[in-house]
Amino acid sequence: MQTTHSVPLLCVISLLGIASASAQSLPDGENGRYTLSPVKDGVVRLDTRTGTVSTCADAGNGWTCRVVPDERAALDTEIGRLQKENESLKTQLAAKSDVAPKLKESERKIEIPLPSDRDMDRMMSTVENAWRRLVEMAGRLQRDYGGKI
Rank of each mutant, 00 (worst) to 15 (best):
M1E: 03
Q2V: 01
Q2M: 00
Q2H: 00
H5E: 07
S6N: 01
V7S: 00
V12H: 00
V12S: 01
I13Y: 01
I13C: 02
S14V: 05
I18T: 00
A19L: 01
A19M: 01
S20L: 10
S20N: 06
S20Y: 05
A21V: 03
A23V: 04
L26P: 00
L26H: 01
P27Y: 02
D28Q: 14
G29D: 05
G29H: 07
G29K: 07
R33T: 01
Y34H: 05
Y34D: 01
T35V: 12
T35D: 11
L36W: 02
S37A: 14
S37W: 03
S37T: 14
S37R: 13
V39W: 04
V39N: 10
V39E: 08
D41Y: 04
D41T: 11
D41P: 01
V44I: 14
L46F: 00
L46C: 02
T48S: 14
R49V: 15
G51P: 03
T52K: 14
T52F: 09
V53Y: 04
S54P: 08
S54H: 08
S54T: 12
T55V: 15
D58C: 02
D58Q: 04
G60R: 04
G60C: 02
G60K: 04
N61Q: 11
N61V: 13
G62Y: 02
W63R: 02
W63A: 07
W63E: 06
T64A: 13
R66N: 14
R66F: 12
V67A: 12
V67D: 12
D70Y: 06
E71M: 12
A73M: 10
D76M: 08
D76Q: 08
D76A: 09
T77D: 07
E78R: 15
E78A: 15
I79V: 14
I79P: 00
G80C: 05
G80H: 06
R81S: 13
R81I: 10
L82P: 03
Q83Y: 02
K84W: 00
N86R: 12
E87K: 07
E87H: 03
S88T: 14
S88W: 01
S88A: 13
S88D: 10
L89K: 05
K90C: 05
K90T: 08
T91V: 11
T91Y: 01
L93C: 11
L93Q: 10
A94I: 14
A94C: 06
A95N: 08
S97R: 15
D98I: 09
V99S: 09
K102M: 10
K102D: 00
L103W: 00
E105W: 05
S106N: 06
E111A: 12
L114W: 01
S116M: 02
D117K: 10
D119T: 13
M120C: 06
M120R: 11
D121Q: 11
M124R: 13
S125A: 15
T126H: 10
N129R: 15
A130S: 09
W131L: 15
W131C: 12
W131A: 15
R132M: 14
R133Q: 13
R133M: 11
L134R: 11
V135D: 12
E136S: 07
E136D: 06
G139N: 13
R140S: 14
L141G: 10
L141D: 12
Q142Y: 05
Y145M: 12
Y145T: 15
G146P: 03
G147I: 07
K148G: 10
K148Q: 10
I149M: 12
I149C: 07
I149H: 05
